[in-house]
């Protein structure tokens, strides 16, 4: 049960934000972390507790690329496609990562759910464009070569 896992954290967040709607994003963040993905059940629960239309909760989830209704891989690779990164070659980075890592298309996961690749909007790392994040770790000033090496290191982690 997805709600059970998050219940305690949710309650803490509800208390922290006097304006109920402000609690939505932190709650979704917790749910995504704990459960690996969001569910209809979570949408319904949060809508009811925060007094929001369910469709509005759904709307927020679909707006942000870090939220998802599908289970993601162990490593989520987010490649920034916004303007500064794009101009510094993020397309090539995306291609290299896709090819090197996994032979899958963007927004898909590898079969063993090890990797998910997501082209995303600005990560706030314009100073080290082009940039990507793997889970919470940041990688900047990438070249296709550098990106390949990073992915290779993550791939080897499986074998250890």
């Amino acid at each position: 049960m997805s709600i059970k896992k998050c219940r305690q954290e949710f309650e803490k967040i509800f208390k922290k934000y006097p304006d109920k709607t402000q609690a939505l994003l932190p709650c979704l963040y917790v749910a995504q972390e704990k459960c690996g993905c969001l569910t209809e059940e979570i949408v319904s629960f949060l809508a009811q507790r925060l007094d929001l239309p369910k469709v509005e909760v759904y709307s927020v989830i679909t707006f942000y690329s870090m939220f998802s209704f599908e289970k993601k891989g162990k490593f989520v690779i987010r490649i920034c496609m916004s303007l500064p990164c794009y101009l510094r070659g993020s397309r090539e980075i995306l291609e290299a990562v896709v090819e090197e890592a996994l032979c899958i298309k963007p927004n898909q996961s590898t079969e063993a759910k090890k990797f998910t690749i997501e082209p995303v909007s600005c990560l706030g790392l314009c100073d080290i464009a082009p940039a990507m994040m793997i889970n919470k770790k940041i990688y900047g000033n990438l070249t296709p070569q550098k990106a390949r090496e990073i992915i290779r290191r993550y791939k080897q982690e499986k074998d250890k």
């Binding site: 929001l52 239309p53 469709v55 509005e56 759904y58 709307s59 679909t62 707006f63 909007s121």
Partner: peptide
């Protein structure tokens, strides 16, 4: 739909060129 009628059947979804206004899921 949301404010005046208090129904909440439709809302914007996704972003960029994928944005549509409609029901959830």
């Amino acid at each position: 739909c949301t404010e005046i009628q208090g129904v909440g059947a439709i809302f914007p979804q996704n972003r960029g060129f994928k944005t549509i206004i409609g029901p959830a899921f």
